[in-house]
């Protein structure tokens, strides 16, 4: 959850927030946002589009720019995982895993095509396992992996800080089951 109170306490009129501020935020967070998107998206191109959309939303929300860093990260990560999860689940992008693996293998040149295919396959298994989880569990795992503290997680996902340990243990167990159900491991 975004800390609006914190964002409000240092109001910066939109005209004064030079675009340099936004650019700095973009550069600082792009890689993390892209990777979050990529774990749920089928391809790099989709992940790039999702990251762009996330920053378009940030651009439209100048008040978030001045939120404290943890809250800003929480906001960005929540938005991108939310977008990516929904895109992957709803809009017919749930293509067959073979297609994704093939597309990824085809677009990358590597010394050993077998390695690339294997790696793409592994990535696809993780993605499929995440998408079989409820969104909140997938989000929790991704945001934790992206380095949010328990307090930041609690804020981003709007739950009590004391419950993160329990939720995380549950989500990890669910992920393991989901991954196994996909025929891997």
């Amino acid at each position: 959850m975004v800390n609006f109170a914190a964002a409000r306490s240092q109001p910066v009129p939109y005209e004064q927030t030079v675009s340099g501020d936004f650019d700095a935020l973009f550069l600082a967070h792009y890689v993390a946002v892209f990777r979050l998107a990529y774990r749920l998206a089928g391809t790099r191109e989709e992940a790039e589009d999702l990251a762009q959309e996330t920053f378009a939303r940030l651009h439209a929300s100048p008040r978030i720019w001045t939120a404290e860093p943890g809250a800003l990260k929480g906001w960005l990560y929540r938005v991108v995982t939310n977008l990516a999860y929904n895109a992957a689940r709803t809009s017919g992008r749930r293509r067959r895993r073979e297609d994704v693996v093939f597309a990824e293998a085809a677009r990358r040149t590597a010394p050993d095509p077998a390695d690339v295919a294997e790696e793409a396959e592994r990535r696809e298994s993780v993605r499929a396992a995440l998408l079989r989880l409820p969104e909140r569990q997938a989000q929790l795992l991704l945001l934790r992996h992206a380095g949010l503290s328990y307090r930041e997680l609690a804020e981003a996902l709007n739950v009590a800080p004391g419950s993160i340990g329990t939720l995380l243990a549950r989500a990890e167990a669910a992920f393991e089951r989901s991954y196994r159900a996909g025929g891997e491991l």
Binding site: V31, F34, R35, R39
Partner: peptide
């Protein structure tokens, strides 16, 4: 989850 960490856009 670390599988994609090496991709650096």
């Amino acid at each position: 989850l670390s599988h994609v960490d090496e991709y650096a856009p």
